[in-house]
């Protein structure tokens, strides 16, 4: 089914209002500068907006401790995929030029308040955070290195799902990453999954929902199928808070909603509880 739809559903900020930020949840307007200064959190409704992978890393890893790994692992155009708007290769190369990243997840070793960890952060700006073969390879390698170095694993997800442009092998990354995480757990190491806005489709249906604990931020969108796909299937209007962080917590699939300012101490505390 078409579970790669979150990308379509995100409210867009009109380009004409380049200086203004509009909160996608409550629609309040504020100068972009104010939005940035508030760490991309809406001052009106507390929606925790998207961060780049690098912004996130700087807020979670102790200063100077993040050492990136697997940067040579990038995308693969094994299908020579092209669609109505052009070819995958050009699109992804443009994304690389724009974001400075070479895949949708940035991986590295670091310390979190002094606790050693393997940290992965997805960047929604990279092809909608989609799960490609490079993404899956980086995550699988991260699990293996974490096992070898006895490091707990923390992944911040932000994704619309699998990357269609890489076809069946992008789907297979769901199985590959899930298997690697299973081995990490079997080796006695913890995995904390942080589902940030949005975490949907094939990423939610693999490593993002496999945390020993799954946490999120206020008002994040988390789900498998897209809202519109579901509404068209069941011919019903869904509640406004459907697939929100709060909704998932209520239904038992999220351990805790953690505010951005509290995330780093929260992660450190859990690692401490488990003896890492």
């Amino acid at each position: 089914m078409s579970w790669f739809v979150a990308n379509n559903e995100k409210p867009k900020i009109p380009p004409a209002k380049a200086l203004w930020a509009i909160c996608p949840k409550c629609k309040s307007h504020m100068p972009k500068e104010e939005w940035k200064k508030n760490n991309s959190i809406c001052p009106k409704c507390n929606y925790h907006g998207r961060l780049s992978a690098r912004e996130r890393i700087s807020q979670v890893a102790d200063e100077g401790t993040f050492a990136e790994v697997f940067r040579d692992v990038s995308y693969s155009d094994h299908l020579e995929f092209h669609d109505a708007s052009g070819d995958y290769k050009s699109k992804v190369e443009a994304t690389i030029a724009k974001t400075g990243e070479r895949e949708s997840v940035v991986m590295g070793t670091c310390e979190i308040d002094g606790h050693k960890a393997m940290l992965g952060v997805m960047d929604f700006a990279f092809m909608g955070g989609s799960l490609g073969t490079g993404t899956g390879e980086r995550i699988a390698r991260a699990c293996e290195q974490a096992i070898a170095e006895r490091r707990p694993l923390v992944i911040f997800s932000a994704s619309g799902g699998a990357r269609m442009h890489e076809g069946i092998l992008s789907l297979m990354q769901m199985a590959k990453t899930s298997a690697a995480i299973g081995r990490l757990k079997a080796a006695g190491l913890p995995y904390i999954s942080v589902c940030t806005d949005p975490t949907t489709g094939g990423v939610s249906a693999s490593y993002a929902m496999l945390g020993d604990i799954n946490v999120t931020e206020p008002k994040a969108l988390i789900g498998f199928a897209g809202r519109r796909v579901i509404e068209n299937t069941i011919h019903q209007k869904l509640p406004a808070d459907f697939q929100s962080a709060e909704y998932l917590e209520k239904h038992g699939f999220i351990d805790k909603i953690v505010e951005r300012k509290d995330m780093k101490p929260f992660l450190a505390k859990m690692l401490y509880f488990w003896g890492f």
Binding site: T200, A208, V229, I230, T233
Partner: peptide, 17 residues
């Protein structure tokens, strides 16, 4: 997988994962 309201509430993503 079924794209339904209850399917999401009962953790479709988690069940597949």
């Amino acid at each position: 997988a079924y794209p339904g309201k209850e399917a999401e509430e009962r953790g479709q993503a988690e069940a597949i994962a």
